[in-house]
Nucleic acid binder design. Structure first.
Lengths: 178, 178
DNA sequence: CATAGCATGTAAACAGTTACATGATTAT
DNA sequence: ATAATCATGTAACTGTTTACATGCTATG
């Protein structure tokens, strides 16, 4: 956990909702933030250990169903760190969209290949849209105090995907790919 | 330039259009790919040197207006490498949107702060939209053979930004921020 | 005559992913 | 039995940014 890595904030954010294990945190990321923030496994456990050594979290070891678990709980210091980060102006992120980069240089690529890529893009985005809409329908009935914010981020994901799908259809026509 | 870094592909892609200096490449990225692919300065020069040592580009030193320049030209091998990469299925990129991450955890943030962040988001996206629309108007009249693909990527950027702006306005209402 | 832009580059620090190792439980 | 899931962790590698160093030319 170095100065600038934001991994600690998503970790602290998740355990601020409810104490959790490293595994739980990874599941939460996979199931509910993955469409706007992803983390790889190799970051979570070291970050949790460093949060404990820096006093931002405490660790409680238990055994549940014969499984050893380490349940992490946020401390007052962790809450303060999280809150002060949340109140800082968000930083712009570097963007890297490999699909669009390939399209940018697609002049010498066979039209069939370009069409194939756009159709894959459409398929993947359709699947993702379905997943987000499923999430949406479960979230709408939730009474969790976080719900309005989670709904807003989910609507963000859905809005982007819909715009991408519409663009992809138009682009197949505009590039005369079919 | 290691195995997986994609920096070499954007570098080769740009010099495949027209021989260029490292500085030119940075300008091109800043002016025309930055909304979907960014690179930092410290990557460009070492990548160019390695492209030369790997036979993907050649380097020609000249002096222009008293300035020393190194003009890089793509080789046949470079063109082949670029083309074979372009024809591989695009890889998904990891997503990291700090603004949305902060909104996800915004329950304990003052409403005024949340509103401020969304308004900054709107301002920044308005500016970016204007820049892209300016680019768009110059591109539409271009007869460059790359034009249809550049236009498609530009339309992608514009579509996303418009969707984001609409979402932001709805979200101010939905979260009762005003 | 100062500031912005043109032009090239490196070193150190920082960040992140991949692959592996281990072993238990639950479902098929 | 065996595959999937739960659960924790590390090492090595890969990739990226930041800050610095240098010096020239064009513009106001």
């Amino acid at each position: 956990m170095t100065e600038k890595s934001r991994t600690k904030y998503i970790v602290l954010g998740i355990i601020s909702i409810k104490p959790a294990t490293g595994y739980d945190i990874m599941q939460t990321i996979k199931n509910s933030t993955n469409y706007f923030w992803s983390e790889s496994e190799g970051q979570i456990y070291p970050t949790l250990a460093k949060c404990v050594s820096n006093g931002y979290a405490t660790c409680h070891e238990t055994t549940e169903n014969g499984r050893n678990k380490k349940i992490y709980t946020i401390t007052k210091e962790g809450q303060q760190l999280l809150k002060s980060w949340l109140e800082e102006k968000p930083q712009r992120n570097s963007v890297r969209n490999e699909f669009i980069l390939k399209l940018f240089f697609a002049k010498n690529v066979y039209k069939e290949k370009v069409l194939e890529f756009i159709q894959d893009f459409i398929d993947n985005h359709h699947k993702e849209l379905q997943e987000l809409e499923l999430l949406f329908s479960t979230l709408t009935s939730s009474k969790d105090p976080h719900q309005p914010f989670w709904l807003a981020t989910l609507e963000y994901g859905i809005a982007i995907i819909k715009a991408e799908l519409e663009w992809a259809q138009r682009t197949i026509t505009n590039l005369n790919l079919e």
